[in-house]
Nucleic acid binder design. Sequence first.
DNA 1: GACAGGCGGTCGACATTGTCGACCGAGTGG
DNA 2: CCACTCGGTCGACAATGTCGACCGCCTGTC
Lengths: 254, 254
Amino acid sequence: MPGPIQSLSRAAAIMRLLAGGERRLGLSEVATALDLAKGTAHGILRTLQQEGFVEQDPESGKYQLGAELLRLGQSYLDVHELRARALVWADDLARAAGETVYLGVLHQQGVLIVHHVFRPDDTRQVLEVGSMQPLHSTALGKVLMAYDPVARGELGEGPLEAYTSRTLTELGDIDAECALIRERGWADAIEETWEGVASIGALIQDRRRNPVGAVCISGAVERVCEDGFVRPSLVASVRSAARAISRDLGAGRF
Amino acid sequence: MPGPIQSLSRAAAIMRLLAGGERRLGLSEVATALDLAKGTAHGILRTLQQEGFVEQDPESGKYQLGAELLRLGQSYLDVHELRARALVWADDLARAAGETVYLGVLHQQGVLIVHHVFRPDDTRQVLEVGSMQPLHSTALGKVLMAYDPVARGELGEGPLEAYTSRTLTELGDIDAECALIRERGWADAIEETWEGVASIGALIQDRRRNPVGAVCISGAVERVCEDGFVRPSLVASVRSAARAISRDLGAGRF
DNA sequence: GACAGGCGGTCGACATTGTCGACCGAGTGG
DNA sequence: CCACTCGGTCGACAATGTCGACCGCCTGTC
């Protein structure tokens, strides 16, 4: 039976739809958005609700995502081997560099943040675990594209969004950048996604040398850069953390 | 069609199964655990994998939860109105009390933590957003049971697990405790779940006075308690935070 | 205040769709 | 080298999910 189960794919589409829209959605909105009969959409929603994946506001009757997703997402993190091994190294890196540390993996057309260490100071920061970052304008994303053909393939051919004036939007430029990244072994992104923010990333490999994720530090361009280039000492810290995590992942084998 | 969609319910059961077991599960294990034909289980797993809800270790062929769940779980938090409104109040409460703050909602037979503010000191702490706490032995759970008949109903009739010697395990004791909680307007739990930990919780209501969640502070019994009772000043802080959040939730209406 | 239009939800007929159990090739341990 | 178990496939069958019409309710309008 090499075909996806229709009702399941539709349920997934509904959940993604609910995740995308900021506000709650009504039954009819869901049905028309996905081109389903109202009865069909209702059946799926009712089941999802029963399972806790979707909740219904009893007042308006509109639907939103449910708590079970949060619980399962947490379980995903619990089992995540890369994340587990990287926890302590990421902590050390944040302390050594004095900057925010992200750990990301390829997911669909972006980088999913699976771990986030706050910059070690007292400013209020929001946890970004579970959020996505673009592939073509972040150090994490560029590292993954440089080493993982699948990641590069996710860019497609469409025009790339320019978040700032420094964002690379031409596929040719991206490929040249990737070649450079492979050559020197690390990636940077200076104000390519957010004004004023620069990041430095390096690859994490598993025991068979497959790319499985990336670490990066991210911080104000004034601190991370010097004379328009990222500080070599920070690059060294990031690469050493990435090597340490990769070694840790391979430990089971040797 | 007032019946759940079979394939969806089964998919949900598979994901819960994967979330429960600490390690990855093979196809046959899943099939036998849920009493499904191997082909059926495989079809569901394949679809879930395609949608990103499940990942397969290419080496062993075993299955685990997928990254999409983390992303959707995060989206759940983004939309969560109670959490959004409570963010700043929880922060203030943590600072004022000098203790860890949790925000929880009823989910199935437990309390799901939707927000967590670390105790304001430099000790290393792990984020518990997305994890579950028991109903009958935590301040959060007892508050919810005292005011929400649904929560009380989730206890069922079975024997309650005793986590410590102070855990209430008799339903009669629980009901008496709930009556007391309703009378005085707050709940405590002193070493009822974890040795050495005490917590104080209060109810959060929405604009129609329905119970929607609870806040609590939690910390070492030496700091939270005095002469065997929780410190009145901390109780006052928690109750005031709960009132503030409830008021915030009702703001839309008045 | 009656109407119209929208909502969420239900119903029953239909055939599409998911299910089942036998089967396959690969890997593994005895 | 066999025998076992693994993940995965296949095709027949009917159980299952789907569809579109319909229902009652609420809201806003004329």
